[in-house]
């Protein structure tokens, strides 16, 4: 836990530094007439101070047995989380070329399979039905302009 937290604090230090550079490149103005870069610079200094303090404190803190346990899941559980994230990413990437129906059926199918449904027949039926009903609801009832893709649905 502590090691992972230290990495996060370090990441925030770097983010704060990049943000500071970005803030300083904007018009700063004066104290009486602050410009666009004034507030971002203040915030970046705040992020830097807080993340450096948190990083130093996390390194000083003695590690207890409970804190040595891994923060993120291992083995099968980890694979499931990564696979679901990739399924969502695939939905976003393929939404424009393939259209909403195919992508939503794919995402629903992947979610059902990853979260424990074993029967492929049921997965296909639920995924296709969800895609069609949600398409009808979002596009035909709510009139949302969802991408239709090259297959025109």
């Amino acid at each position: 836990m502590i090691r992972t937290q230290s990495i996060i604090y370090l990441f925030l230090c770097i983010l704060g530094a990049i943000y500071l550079v970005g803030g300083l490149s904007l018009p700063m103005g004066t104290v009486n007439q602050p410009g666009a870069g004034f507030f971002p610079t203040l915030v970046s200094v705040l992020i830097l101070c807080l993340s450096v303090s948190a990083f130093v404190l996390s390194r000083k803190k003695p590690t207890t047995t409970g804190e040595r346990k891994p923060v993120f899941p291992q083995g099968q559980d980890r694979r499931r989380v990564i696979a679901l994230t990739l399924a969502i990413l695939s939905f976003v990437v393929f939404l424009k070329p393939l259209g909403y129906c195919i992508c939503s059926a794919g995402l629903m199918g992947a979610t059902l399979r990853l979260l424990g449904l074993r029967s492929w027949v049921r997965i296909v039926i639920i995924a296709v039905l969800t895609a069609l009903i949600s398409y009808y609801f979002f596009v035909l009832i709510l009139d949302l302009p969802l991408p239709i893709g090259s297959l025109l649905f």
């Binding site: 979610t111 059902l112 449904l117 969800t130 949302l144 969802l146």
Partner: peptide
């Protein structure tokens, strides 16, 4: 209601809601 169906629906709602 099985969790896998509920989570799938939440994902679709999040994605479509944000896009819209």
């Amino acid at each position: 209601l099985p969790q896998h169906i509920l989570m799938g629906l939440i994902l679709l709602l999040c994605l479509v809601g944000t896009y819209s």
